[in-house]
Design a protein around this nucleic acid. Structure first.
Lengths: 246, 246
DNA sequence: CGTTCCGTTTGCGCGGGCGCAAAGAGACGC
DNA sequence: GCGTCTCTTTGCGCCCGCGCAAACGGAACG
């Protein structure tokens, strides 16, 4: 295995380069820099000049925004095949958040200048980037609406479902999030405190919906979580007589 | 005046087309469709197929996202010279929100196919679009953090300051928001209720910071609002003796 | 000029979830 | 094996801000 040599196959998988011909891909591969990134590394920091476009070949990266008085927001988790820090390069030139390697990663990057040239030469890349950034915008807007209008419990359910979708791994008794995820992290994704998250997960664990661990969550009944997220009228598991609905 | 004929001058002002030569601009103008939009008109609806890229020449448009059970979020207000609905065209093809004309407007639009061709031909347009969408992404992420970590009062202050920046008009006794803006609208921008917004504004009015009216807000002391937004230790106006700081 | 309607203000009571505090429980190093 | 450190759980009390309800007031319309 040659993790430090740019691998055309893994780059071909990036949405940013979909629809390009072999010649273009070859050029892209030539101009890419690949490197291992150790767990815990800060890949870039909020406020830095955005000089590099990053993509993740393997691992998991957390994007965190910090406010003036230290409050933190988990903007998103990046998985294999996703770009990060690229939007900043082309709008403002300052990274708006920190990027942290949650596990050992393999990353690849291009300089801003190189990527700019590539986009000028292959407009398709710019269009792909627009697609990707546009989707993230929609996703963040949806989170904004959830945060505005939903209670904490529903927001946590939504957040977990989103994580399952993008980082879920089937295991014997359900689906687990495949990277270390603390209660604090979940709190920073949903705009609440780790205490409240802990209470909610404990509650769900009592109902057999999830199973918690240290920096670990396994979802045993995804459908029950969906019901909570969508605020459906509880499936009523093995309960005593129905309580009169108010 | 010829409001219904595409006006090269006003299109030249659009950030989307900055950096293009005269020939390109001419082509862009030729392919544009201009129209008047009456106050109250729904320009597009959430869920519609995104077939048009819009820009606003004059007026004010509200972008509103609606949740499953009717909860609404004001995503942003569009002013003259801004694009809207364009990100959706290139990512997913479905408008993620409604666009409403708050006042009589003059708008211009291109079909998705036309804009796609323009971007292929003039990559600069795609890069400009990436810039614009990236900045909006950053702005929305910042709002997300504010909503996660700040109290209602600070959020309302931030929202008003943002409005002043993009739609403020100097008047005798301060700066006013130059389009009809209800308490409900402010509530939907900040994730609270119109009641709470009304209470907060009443409080500020008592301190002479703002002046309210029907669908109207005037900021008399922007600096005081900044102090609230940044959570600074109150300038202490004409008060009795200092209360002991806790 | 009166009526209607819509946006706004204000009071009151409650409750979700935060703040604080302390204990429990794995993981890790020596 | 033991101590330490970090993450997690849980209890308790309080307060911000919501829900509900009612009244107010200006604008628009006939």
């Amino acid at each position: 295995m040659t993790p430090l040599a740019p691998d055309p196959a893994s780059l071909r998988g990036l949405r940013l380069f979909s629809g390009l011909d072999a010649a273009a891909l070859a050029e892209i591969v030539r101009s890419a820099h690949t490197r291992r990134i150790e767990k815990g590394t800060t890949i870039f920091s909020q406020g830095d000049r955005a000089t590099l476009c990053h993509a993740l070949i393997d691992g998991r990266v957390k994007i965190v925004q910090t406010g003036a008085d230290g409050q933190q927001l988990v903007v998103r988790y990046i998985g294999a095949g996703e770009m990060f820090g690229t939007a900043a390069v082309f709008s403002g030139g300052i990274y708006p958040a920190d990027a942290l390697a949650m596990v050992d990663c393999v990353g690849v990057h291009w300089t801003a200048a190189t990527m700019g040239e590539l986009m000028e030469r292959y407009p398709r890349i710019a269009l792909n980037a627009l697609d990707i950034v546009g989707r993230r915008l929609q996703e963040v807007q949806t989170r904004l609406r959830e945060l505005s209008t939903e209670r904490v419990e529903r927001r946590v359910a939504h957040a977990l479902l989103r994580l399952v979708r993008q980082a879920g791994r089937r295991v014997g008794n359900g689906v687990e999030i495949d990277f270390p995820l603390s209660r604090q992290d979940i709190a920073e994704m949903t705009g609440t405190t780790l205490h409240t998250v802990s209470r909610i997960l404990s509650g769900w664990e009592g109902q057999g919906i999830v199973e918690g661990g240290r920096q670990q969550v396994t979802i045993r009944q995804p459908h029950a979580l969906v019901a909570i997220a969508e605020d459906l009228p509880k499936p009523e598991k093995l309960e005593v007589a129905q309580k009169p609905e108010k």
